[in-house]
């Protein structure tokens, strides 16, 4: 997937993944895809809920060796 930006929040704890995702998202254009890499296990629910609330689209999510990766398309 072609991400316009990759955000690395690995190792960071709540609430940082969501705060940084929001900041990164602000810099993107509508339709752009943001790739977020996180290790906080709560990020799965957090990013899913945040994406839904903001009207964005969670295109895909994967989990590999404890790293959660999300691709979010900006509304």
């Amino acid at each position: 997937m072609n991400a316009a930006k990759v955000l690395d929040v690995k190792g960071l704890a709540c609430p940082m993944p969501i705060v940084k995702t929001k900041k990164a998202m602000q810099e993107l254009e509508s339709g752009d895809i943001l790739e977020v890499q996180a290790t906080d296990q709560g990020a799965k629910s957090d990013l899913t809920a945040w994406t839904k609330s903001g009207g964005h689209e969670l295109m895909q999510e994967t989990e590999e060796n404890g790293v959660l990766t999300f691709w979010i398309k900006k509304e």
């Binding site: 709540c14 609430p15 969501i18 705060v19 929001k22 945040w50 903001g54």
Partner: peptide, 11 residues
């Protein structure tokens, strides 16, 4: 303050 920051991230 964590909740406040989270809510701010929700705009």
């Amino acid at each position: 303050y964590i909740i406040a920051n989270g809510a701010a991230a929700y705009d």
